[in-house]
Structure formats: structure tokens, C-alpha cells
Amino acid sequence: MADSAALYRTVRLIRRFEERAVELVRAKQIFGGIHPCTGQEAIAAGTCAALRRDDVITSTHRGHGHVLAKGADPARMMAELAGRATGLNRGRGGSMHAADFTVGVLGANAIVGAAAPIATGAAWAARRAGSDRVALTYFGDGAVSQGVVLEAFNLAALWRAPVIFVCENNGWATTTRTADHAAGSITGRAEAFGIPAARVDGMDPEAVLAATAEAVARARGGAGPTLLECLTYRFDAHHTWEHTARPRYRTPEEVEAGRARDPLAVQGARIPVADRARIDADVEQLMDAAVRFALDAPLPDPATALDHLYADGTRVRAGAA
């Protein structure tokens, strides 16, 4: 079980990773932009601290934190964002599809809610294989009105599948308030299927860890799924295009209030100042090395653009011949 310093380190790593990635977007070193998870780091840090390396997760379009917290190499992750041949996905996935099967990251998914049944299937398969592995799937508040998420709740509950549903409720589905897109409650949706559900302080890594540990124990013990609704706030844009497009949907006052409670400060207050400074310096070094690795990494060869389209190497016709 992670200690306070380890949780702080994960939050700090994700925060600095996102800040450096946003800089690289501005410098046009990252093509296409990103969905920064700044402000939501406690959820990734707390949930993954309750998982084993061989447990699996599925992530979302706002997924850098999850992928890093589960153990992916920040350098190869940054290289992936920069579209490099040595990125996690060899430059084929980018920010929204980062995956690292060696540490149980079954991929970030760019269709809201679509990974909920995939994680449920992975959980079912783990049990079929006689393993006590669990699957954990993240989605935002915007996903709770996707039929496929509710269908996945039903299947997971019917089968008591070892899956943990983690809703990161940051109050906004892009520019629509939760209250304007979701009738009823989020926990109520799970409860309707007989799935235990809890609201968790998603700004506190230790609270998230405690709640997740309980859910993981339930799943490993054969008692089935849990939903955790983690209340959080997105400090930055929905996507970096907002930095130039500047759509108006949150007032500066709201953003300021939302940023008042920062997971970095919450967790940082729990460890000695000297330890915190040492961790910050370590993370800084790690991120410097990660950015250097990413920018020095080779670009993929356009001739390989269709590699991996099929697992068995089936080749398709070119677009011009």
C-alpha cells in the first residue's frame, strides 16, 4: 500500500507531466493537442495505488494521469504524445489512445463510456482464467448517460464481475454542467443495478485510495463491482484548443473556486517539507529527461503507416496504385 510520500510523488508527476505536455502543445511539438487532467490527479494516484501491477485499467480521453499512475514510463508516454516511433504505441495512438499492456493499461479510449464493457469483459476473463486480477475503468460524468455504460453496469452486477467503475465527476461534460446532462444521481444509477456506490473526495488521494482499496477487496473476494463517484475539478481546458478558442462556459470565479482545493496541496501538506522538495526535484529531473527523450526520439517512417492494422500482418491495398 502506498505511503503518503508515494501518493504525493504520483500527483506531482502527473501535474508536471501535464504542464510540460501543454508547453509542448504550445510549442507545436505535440500534434493535435491534449485533454489535460490537471486538478484531477488525486483520482489516478489514489486508485492505481490500490491496484497490483497485473490488474488492468481502461482510461479515457483525459487519461495521461491514469496511464502514468499505473506505471507507464513517462518518457515513452511523452514520446507517444509527440508522435514518435519509440512512444508507448509507436506513435499510432497519441494522447487519447495511450496503452501499455506490460503494466495493465488496456488503452485510453476516445469514445466516452465505450471502455466500460471492455473492462467488464477483461474482468470476466480474468475470473474465467482462475485469476484474482481485477479491472478498473475510468469515465467522466459525461459518460453516465451513455447506454453502454449502464448496460455494462447490468452485466457486471449480474456476473459479479471483478470490476471497479470510477466516475471522475469534474462537473462538466465539455461545456455542459452535470446537472444539465444527467437526471437523477450518478451513484443512484449503480444502486439501481444493485452495485454498491460511494461518493468520494476526488481531490484527496488518500480518500480515493481508501475507497478503492475497499472496492478492490470486494472485487477480488468475488463480491462483484463497485462504483466510485470521485468529485473533482478540471483546472485547465477541456482540450488545449480552448487555449486559443476560449469558449465561455465557466466564469473566472468558478474556476478560481474550483482550483482552491488542489490535490497537490492536499497531499503535500501530509509530508515533511524537505521530503516534498526532494520529490519535486526528482520529478523535475524525470520530466526533463522525459521531454528530452521524446523530442530526440525518431519520427515514424510514413512507409509504416499501416503496420499493425491487423495482428496477423494482413496487408491492404494502397490508396493510390
Binding site: V56, L106, A114, A115, A116, P117, I118, A119, T120, G121, A122, A123, W124, A125, A126, R128, A129, A135, V148, E151, A152, N154, L155
Partner: peptide
Amino acid sequence: AFTGVATGAALS
């Protein structure tokens, strides 16, 4: 959902 479940099972 069950189509997605099959994907997850196949990944595993």
C-alpha cells in the same frame, strides 16, 4: 455492451 465485453475478454 456484450460486444464490448467480448473485446475485453479477447484482450485478456
